[in-house]
Design a protein around this nucleic acid. Structure first.
Length: 829
RNA sequence: GCGAAAGUGGCGGAACUGGUAGACGCGCGGGACUUAGGAUCCCGUGGGUACGCCCGUGGGGGUUCGAGUCCCCCCUUUCGCACCA
């Protein structure tokens, strides 16, 4: 029971020992010179964390360990692996937490980062601590501001008005996620809309490219699908509905005329084939033509409706609810039928999608059907299963396919052809054209908050909007003791006069800084470019280093960032590429999502009290066992269930491996037996393939199986049998592997060289196979047979088996199915 | 509603192109060593059984010599998106 026994497995001791050695030798860190000259570079990226006050979550460790294993495996294959980490520490999350705690974020964040760093180091991740990034450091956000300026210069950033959620009680702007059922998540007051002037990045200009590149980038399919849906391509037509000459409701008898010079209402539709059924139009309440269209008698009602909509928060407006709306009193002309149709406004039409106006086809659109039913508008049928059904009554919207009916010269055309033909017809008459529309919106990057990088813009009375000259960056976020938002609805920076009052960079006159800060997603949209050049004070990223290391070889992260972070960083990369700053336009060659872990069958959360605190487990079992268990508990790309009991399995495995190798002097020197050697080669192959494909759980299982075989019946191991296993386990349990490797007499560290064992494919298979004999598809015998046995011999051997004989029972064999080296199936009777 | 994925022992989970269902681990049972063990090691472990076999991968059909795997219908769960025209 001596605790000083050098052959006892004491994880904490060896883990701390090797962490110190790695730091001292610089095993995982690079100088900038080394980065420039690296051979076989492999950039292994994982999503940097937001350094919360609670410390590292087990979910973070799960994500990082899986990525780290991949990096360590690449390294054991001889690659030079750059594996950086950083801190995504700006944003509303940090700010709200700081407000709650009453501690200033400038004080809180460095503390959290220090704690995270300590925890990350304890896990044994292969990070280059010489190349870290902290988004709140002016040396970093100086270049975030530089990125903004590049977009501004390229005309990809523009300022325009947009609504935001506003909590009248907290005096603050809320993100959509902070609005719960129309109320502020913090105080419960009803949220309102405010219209503010904000900065947008025109990501919609890139919608087509962002969508098309998805066809060739090597990403998790589900992630690509999420982006595809988010970008949301719709093929249809833009159609122009001229305003009717008469605008008043009771002026019904005047015939409609189509005059090209008249103002028109453009609409986007995916179903131009149903245009003959458009019996009314609906505009978003904010639509600019509403005032023109509104008849005097309807003015009061329209105004009231618009006020009601404006008071609503941005989230509840979009939830499906009973249709509401108001008639404007105005009419437009259906360009297909030539008839006047009434124009309504309703909040189910959104200004931000399409043109902010729709042609309503109640017969063939559910929402329009509901609206028409409620307000007594006509619901004609223009699509039917066949011409015979042209007058079948519509009891619900029929959004499916069919043939056109009651559609003038297009009647009888199948739906898809009608779509083409009508679009062509409208376009020949100058009333519309084919159009592709995207669901994707421009990226609003303005935040009326404190904790972010100030947007580098100056407003001058004479010169207008002036970008801060690049040499004047960074625009440093000032220390503001009271950074709480107030009722003005503008950033707390707008209260710091000595900060925002500046001389105009162009004319030197009085000017004012932009007081909004930028979105956290901008910080993370380019961080991977910064890592290799993290120490470069002269440029955001060094051209030579960037050419060598980018794009990223492997990126592993959570699916929750499938659409925002991953899309924004692709967009920023494309813009920087187009501006000549980067040679590539896609940032991540390969992206794989990891799954989420739950605890004992349910989601981990503070309210459930089932949050796994990693430090406790690591203290008890060691980082190696913790890492190995996390990778073992389920398929990495799908996630799994963390059970306290489960940890003892992988711990026991590591301990048995340790006990098998030590003491080294007692290891046998013989060659492995034939069967064990076969298993060794098969295991090397399986673990290599599984790790490369992120199937970590089965890789660990294969190693356990092999160790069990080595130790079967309590036998001791030969060195040649066990030494390769030390290398296979190294990505999972790097400390233990280093220690055993060194005790096995190697002068250099296990990760300093291409130490991954080779296998001989010829030796992965057995000479004897267990051959399955079926009769009529049911297993009746399992017979050992030599590999490569021909069908005739196998059949003879099968028929000689007593049990097989019983089932064949003298009957004629009608058919024989033979699968070489696996199975023979005798069909009788 | 739309989109995606998944339902396998007491539990977490394996199973490549259809070809021995349940690898590996937990738990449980037995044994060894021990004064003792909840430590360690070894062995066993889907259910039933007249010990020949039979039944078993959410439910119901189908294709096939053979289906967890393929096809059709249904049920359940999880995760995205959601009045997107």
């Amino acid at each position: 029971m001596s605790t000083q026994d050098p052959n006892e497995y004491r994880p904490s001791a060896i883990e701390e020992k090797w962490q110190a050695i790695w730091a001292e030798r610089g095993t995982n860190t690079f100088t900038d010179e080394e980065l420039r000259g690296a051979e076989n570079p492999f950039y292994n990226l994982m999503m940097f964390p937001y350094p919360s006050a609670e410390g590292l979550h087990v979910g973070n460790i799960y994500a990082f360990t899986g990525a780290d294993i991949f990096g360590r495996y690449q390294r054991l294959q001889g690659k030079t692996v750059f594996e950086p980490i950083g801190f995504d520490a700006f944003g509303i999350h940090s700010e709200n937490f700081a407000l709650k705690m009453g501690t200033h974020p400038m004080e809180l964040i460095p503390r959290n980062i220090a704690n995270f760093t300590r925890q990350l180091k304890r896990v044994g991740l292969m990070y280059d601590w010489n190349h870290t990034v902290d988004t709140t450091d002016p040396r970093y956000y100086r270049w975030t501001q530089w990125v903004f300026l590049q977009l501004y210069r390229a005309g990809r950033a523009e300022k325009r008005e947009a609504p935001v959620n506003w909590c009248p009680s907290c005096h603050t702007v809320l993100a959509n996620e902070q609005v719960i059922a129309g109320a502020c998540e913090r105080c419960g007051s009803m949220v309102e809309q405010r219209i503010l002037s904000q900065w947008f990045f025109k990501i919609t200009d890139y919608a087509k490219r962002l969508l098309e590149n998805l066809s060739w980038i090597d990403w998790s399919e589900t992630t690509k699908k999420a982006q595809e849906n988010w970008i949301g391509r719709s093929d249809g037509a833009e159609v122009h509905f001229p305003l009717a000459r008469r605008k008043v409701a009771d002026d019904r008898h005047e015939s409609a005329q189509v005059h090209a010079q008249k103002p028109v209402i453009p609409v986007f539709t995916t179903r131009p084939d149903t245009i003959f059924g458009a019996t009314f139009m609906v505009l978003a309440p904010e639509h600019p033509l509403v005032d023109t269209l509104t008849a005097p008698g309807q003015k009061a009602a329209v105004e009231e409706y618009r006020r009601g909509v404006a008071a609503m928060d941005l989230v509840s407006r979009k939830i499906d609810k009973e249709k509401t709306g108001v008639f404007t009193g105005g009419y437009a002309v259906n360009p297909a039928t030539g008839e006047d149709i009434p124009v309504w406004i309703a909040d189910y039409v959104l200004m931000e999608y399409g043109t902010g106006a729709i042609m309503a086809v109640p017969g063939h659109d559910e929402r329009d059907f509901e609206f028409a039913t409620k307000f007594g508008l006509p619901i004609p049928r223009v699509i039917a299963a066949s011409l015979d059904d042209a007058d079948a009554p519509l009891i619900a919207a029929e959004a499916g396919d069919g043939v056109l009916v009651h559609s003038g010269q297009f009647t009888g055309l199948p739906w898809a052809e009608g779509k083409q033909a009508i679009t062509k017809w409208l376009s020949e008459r100058g009333l519309g054209e084919a159009r592709v529309n995207y669901r994707l919106h421009d990226w609003c990057i303005s935040r009326q908050r404190y904790w972010g990088p100030p947007i580098p813009i100056i407003y001058c009375e004479k010169c207008g909007t002036v970008p801060v000259p690049e040499e004047q960056l960074p625009v440093v976020l000032p220390f503001v003791a009271d950074y709480k938002p107030d009722e003005s609805g503008i950033s707390p920076l707008a209260r710091v006069e000595e900060w925002y009052r500046v001389a105009c960079p162009t004319c030197g006159g009085e000017a004012r800084r932009e007081t909004d800060v930028s979105d956290t997603f901008l910080d993370s949209a380019w961080y991977f470019l910064r890592y290799p050049s993290a120490n470069d004070q002269a440029a955001p990223f060094d051209p030579q280093i960037t050419a060598k290391w980018l794009p990223v070889n492997s990126y592993i992260g959570g699916e929750e960032h499938a659409v925002l972070h991953l899309l924004y960083s692709r967009f920023i990369t494309m813009v920087l590429h187009d501006l000549g700053h980067l040679a590539f336009e896609e940032p991540y060659l390969r992206f794989r999502k990891h799954g989420l872990i739950i605890k004992e069958g349910s989601k981990m959360s503070k309210s459930r009290g089932n949050v796994v605190v990693p430090d406790d487990y690591i203290a008890q079992w060691g980082a190696d066992a913790f890492r190995t268990y996390l990778m073992f508990l389920g398929p990495y790309q799908e996630g799994g269930d963390f059970r306290d009991q489960g940890l003892v399995g992988p711990f026991g495995f590591l301990k048995r491996l340790w006990d098998t190798v030590l003491p080294v002097e007692e290891l046998g020197t013989e060659a492995p037996g034939a069967e064990l050697e076969r298993k060794l080669h098969a295991t090397i192959r399986k673990v290599g393939e599984d790790v490369a494909g992120l199937s970590y759980n089965t890789a660990v299982a294969a190693m356990m199986e092999y160790l069990n075989a080595v130790r079967e019946g309590g036998r001791g191991a030969n060195r040649s049998e066990i030494e390769p296993l030390v290398v296979l386990v190294a990505p999972f349990a790097p400390h233990l592997a280093e220690e055993l490797w060194s005790r096995l007499g190697h002068a250099h560290g296990i990760f300093e060289g291409a130490n991954w064992p080779q296998y001989d494919p010829a030796r992965t298979t057995q000479d004897t196979v267990e051959f399955v004999v079926q009769v009529n598809g049911r297993v009746r015998a399992r017979l050992p047979m030599p590999r490569g046995i021909p069908q005739g011999e196998a059949q003879a051997a099968a028929l000689a088996d007593d049990n097989v004989k019983r089932f064949v029972d003298g009957a004629a064999v009608r058919k024989v199915v033979f699968v070489p080296d696996r199975l023979i199936n005798l069909v009788v009777g």
